[in-house]
Design a protein around this nucleic acid. Structure first.
Lengths: 241, 241
DNA sequence: CGAATTTTTGATAAGGTTCAATACAAGTGG
DNA sequence: CCACTTGTATTGAACCTTATCAAAAATTCG
């Protein structure tokens, strides 16, 4: 299902009660709000919907509610999950080129999409918005480089641990010496994100469980019992002095 | 050797004859030039110099001449080469954080570095410069995502082929059905860039040579005899329709 | 030319994938 | 509400790719 259309035209979409709220988290000045509103395409999506937004042009997407994954497709049907995004996250989705990028809903969710070109033009006249966008891009680049490092250098164990640490920081609820999290993505998604097969992910989870570092219940709940130990497993750099 | 210092203080550095030229490729408006000049730190480096620029603060670096690599260091002495950069390339080097980023010279080279914070502030008042910086960041993010896909999904053969295709596009001279290139980096650098050991890189090069797709002479010269075949090996997506 | 370094080649081993089967969770219809 | 069905996750065994270790060959540089 395509989503570059106004909310009214989408049967599945969730109509926002107060339309101003989502755009507010972009931190733009008052004067920019109206113009952002005009540009915004609200899109609701049900869990598992793929191609949640139109990728014929580059888009800047804000997650208002729910969770999505950004996937890239290469030859031979292989896909890489470039990242997972949650409430208030901000995603740059390039237009289809040598690889095709798409957003897929992991849960029912609400998104706001802006055509990138117009968004950037608008940001030029609003220092706050421009700064926010810039610092978002810098963070995205930083995270992507971290991922490159992980994919290029780390073992299966380290990758799974790294993934869990990252998720704990983003969607974990504090718990004892660690955190509790409810993973909205499947083992396949995790594998495609960290460059492993589902079997390897599963085995590493089992080993972490046997080592008493995490415990699991059901498919999605993970309790991190010892965050320090998990970070150790993740192969993180000692804190710089 | 540290390089956040003016050219005059660097024994190794190459003093530029006309100091305006390097900044010109940033495409800034006339009025911004002087302020960029004031901000710029010129740094020359000899081949193999590491820590070519100061990484205690984030920097935006322009390559005026030569070639450099951006490396990230993780625990256990593992390093990932995040990318290679050549004349007129533009690099965002974040301050040291959970990982340490550094520029290393592959050849004798000339660089211009700007403290990122001030550079960004200056860009705010110059639409052209701001646009250039933004589009640079978007391209950098795109390339980094491509690399994630390669590291997460591709085989050794595909990675080496992908690397060669990319280098051909960036520093190759046209030649018959392919290109000739003079690689300024070692096999180790290549391996650290695409997540393989030097032995595996070497073996894959040998196989590509045996397949008649490339030929080599000396350490650094590579002739791509059949670019189409090499792209095939790289596992690229068929051109979108 | 000769020394030092880098690259290539070879043999072996380890980590991860693949294939196959079982167990588990969640949803569906009686 | 429970049995049945479907999809997802876990476990096991064999295989394959790539890493590791070790040595020889090639290139660069003094």
């Amino acid at each position: 299902m395509h989503a570059k259309q106004s909310a009214a035209a989408l049967p599945n979409s969730i109509i926002f009660p107060g339309a101003k709220a989502p755009v507010a988290s972009l931190g733009a000045e008052e004067a920019t709000h109206l113009r952002l509103q005009a540009l915004a395409r609200y899109a609701g999506a049900r869990s598992r919907d793929s191609r949640v937004i139109d990728n014929s042009v580059s888009q800047v997407v804000l997650v208002v509610e729910g969770a999505v994954k950004l996937i890239a497709s290469a030859a031979a049907g292989r896909t890489q999950v470039m990242g997972f995004y949650f409430k208030d996250d901000f995603i740059y989705v390039p237009a289809r080129d040598t690889h095709a990028y798409n957003l897929c809903a992991l849960t029912d969710c609400e998104l706001v999409a802006f055509p990138a070109t117009e968004f950037i033009r608008l940001a030029q006249s609003d220092k706050t918005l421009n700064n926010n966008f810039l610092s978002h891009l810098l963070r995205a680049l930083g995270r992507c480089r971290e991922k490159s490092l992980a994919l290029g250098q780390k073992t299966a164990r380290e990758r799974v641990a790294t993934f869990l640490v990252s998720m704990a920081e983003r969607i974990g609820a504090p718990f004892s010496n660690g955190a509790v999290l409810d993973l909205p993505m499947s083992r396949r998604d995790i594998g495609d994100n960290i460059g492993l097969t589902i079997e390897t992910v599963s085995r590493q989870m089992t080993e972490l469980r046997n080592a008493g570092i995490v415990s699991t219940s059901g498919r999605s709940q993970v309790k991190i019992l010892d965050l320090a130990a998990l970070k150790q497993e993740a192969g993180h750099l000692p804190v710089p002095t």
